[in-house]
Computed example of a mutant assay.
Amino acid sequence: MTTARPTRPSKISSAPFAVFVPTRAEMKPITTALQSTRQSASRSDSMIRIAVGDRVLLLARTGVGPDHAEAAARRLFEETPIAAAVSLGVAGGLSPQAQTGDLIVGDRVILRRSSGQVLDREKGVRLESFPCDSRLQDTATTVLRRWGSRHHLGPILTVDRIVLTEEKHRLAVESGAIALDMESAAIASAASARSIPFLAVRGVLDTVDEDLAMGFDQFLDGRGEPQPLLLIRYLIGHPFTVPHMVGLGLRTKAVCARLGRLLQELSTSLS
């Protein structure tokens, strides 16, 4: 495993925060929580600009997966100066302590690709580690402690495909991570290349002993965006999965609403 140079506590400038969220289902409750502050907002198909106090937030929808996330981050970093980059969304638990609805504040993120340059020849995977910014971490955990909100500080593993329970347990041992997603470490890689402070905060959607009941990869288009019509057709043919899907939707909405409120606190605390 290669590890990027640890970041020092950063001075957060007055430039915009770049906030990366994978899907519309995750983005909507986050922006709803922010817009409840009655601040100005504007949007395009994949970008929402929201002013919270003196801080401008640029919320970019990346699509699912590390390749889409890294490409979206690099594009945004090339277009405008950025004070800090934040990865928000849902995650799968890798630790028994990480229960549904808990927030995971990353102290580092680990990128695990099953393709590309092989750095671990025995396991045939590429592993890179990126530290999260200590000031952003401290601010996030301070807010969550003040709220009395269940949260954990630890490593987040980024993978390039959806994994099932058996593999979750193996990845937990292999990486030491307490949660996994499909975007954060790829965004951290792009941020590290430009020395932009980075933080990942993810909400646990499914625990280490829980499967998502289906491979969501089959419903993604070439941009990594879920295709609702394909999912609806699947549900019509597999009605027994509908209650589970409804439950996942409610969990996603609840945890992302909390992420939106946390983002508001971060942006005002660091202004």
Rank of each mutant, 00 (worst) to 15 (best):
F219A: 03
R194M: 08
Q39P: 04
D206P: 08
D107I: 05
A73P: 05
G101H: 03
L230T: 10
E265G: 04
L94Q: 00
R38E: 14
F130G: 00
H68P: 08
P96Q: 13
S269I: 02
D209G: 02
L250F: 12
G215Y: 12
T80P: 06
R74F: 07
D160L: 07
R146T: 15
L144R: 06
R126S: 14
A91K: 03
I162Q: 11
E78D: 13
A177K: 08
A179T: 06
V52W: 01
D102E: 07
I82Q: 05
Q227G: 01
T158A: 03
R135Q: 08
R43E: 15
D45Q: 12
H68F: 14
G203Q: 03
I104Y: 04
V90A: 12
T100E: 10
S195K: 12
R49S: 14
I162M: 12
V201L: 09
Q227I: 09
V255Q: 02
F216C: 00
D138H: 11
S129C: 10
R170N: 09
I12T: 02
S40I: 05
R150P: 13
Q218V: 11
L88N: 05
G154I: 13
P155E: 07
P81A: 15
I30S: 06
I156H: 04
T23S: 15
R8T: 14
P226E: 05
P226D: 07
E265Q: 15
L212K: 09
I156T: 05
A191I: 03
P226V: 05
E210N: 06
V255W: 00
A254Q: 12
